[in-house]
Design a protein around this nucleic acid. Structure first.
Lengths: 162, 162
DNA sequence: AACACTAAGGATATATTTGTCTACATTAAA
DNA sequence: TTTAATGTAGACAAATATATCCTTAGTGTT
């Protein structure tokens, strides 16, 4: 699955907060989780981590919640991957050899090297803000708009999308 | 982790059988598992699947075990991935959108498309036999040779490698 | 100061993957 | 034909990833 489910949740939550940035200052986990059809508390854990890593700004209390920080949109996906999934995806040998490098390569080393190089390249070149360009914004907004009236309905509708 | 642990076990077992192909006809799970430091019965399950898919030939009874089939070495890694890990790695959207394609792309669609294209390319171009070329063979052989005397030692030594 | 609202944190639960054990079926060899 | 060596199969267990629940701690409002 290349990336974890958590990573997908993380991106989706950031994009949701980003799309909402004109409408109000802070967005609540409650709302995000409902609109994106992500388990409320699991979403909370992930966002807590994002806040701790300064990817989002959070504040407690009434009308509190999450918003973008200045550099959120400039952050490469690479950083997000490392924060959520860790570096294992890049430094774990496919055959699980403990020592596997160019000097002492496992039989799949160079193939994996090529794959990982491509992966790193895409993830480093793509910034979070880059995911918001053009009509893609519409896709995100559709999650929150093209959805029913009532909370439980919202969730079931959202689940049809994600 | 891109590929599952099981996938790594599968490749390692096939390569082991391949390297042993001169020395004897059949190689036993018992031996393979010990030399590669893979849990005996877990290894068995994976190899059973490989045999069912005609990637290896198996026979029961005394002096039975596994050996290569004619086309084993010509098989692209792509096929092996699908057999062991399934197609989810290629058809699951990173953001877990149910409908995600070029016409209705999720915000990460084109980045993932690029990554997956690279992945498929490497996995399709690389055949299992290709992993056996040159000095890589030495790496595999080292698993079984550069290892101690006694079975329990063998396992612990092997674990240092993998 | 008291209250209500919201994120933070920790404990617990469920699902999936990985690993273990036991019994059984097949086959070669004696 | 008996026996022992082997793969096959399924139930069970442990580890990890994902999900839920409850409590705590800030923060704005009254």
């Amino acid at each position: 699955m290349i990336f974890s489910k958590s990573f997908g949740y993380a991106i989706r939550s950031i994009l949701y907060v980003a799309v909402m940035r004109d409408e109000k200052r802070y967005v609540q986990v409650e709302e995000i989780a409902a609109k994106l059809a992500v388990p409320r508390h699991f979403m909370g854990k992930i966002m807590k981590k994002l806040a701790k890593e300064k990817i989002l700004i959070s504040t407690k209390g009434p009308s509190g919640g999450f918003m973008l920080s200045e550099h959120t949109l400039e952050m490469p996906l690479m950083d997000l991957i490392v924060i959520i999934d860790g570096v294992e995806i890049f430094d774990t040998c496919a055959l699980r050899a403990k020592e596997c490098n160019a000097d002492n390569p496992c039989p799949m080393h160079f193939q994996m090297d090529s794959i990982k190089r491509d992966l790193k390249s895409v993830l480093s070149e793509t910034k979070i803000g880059g995911l918001l360009e053009e009509d893609k914004t519409e896709f995100i907004r559709s999650i929150s708009t093209a959805i029913g009236i009532e909370p439980s309905q919202k969730i079931s509708e959202a689940q049809k999308v994600y």
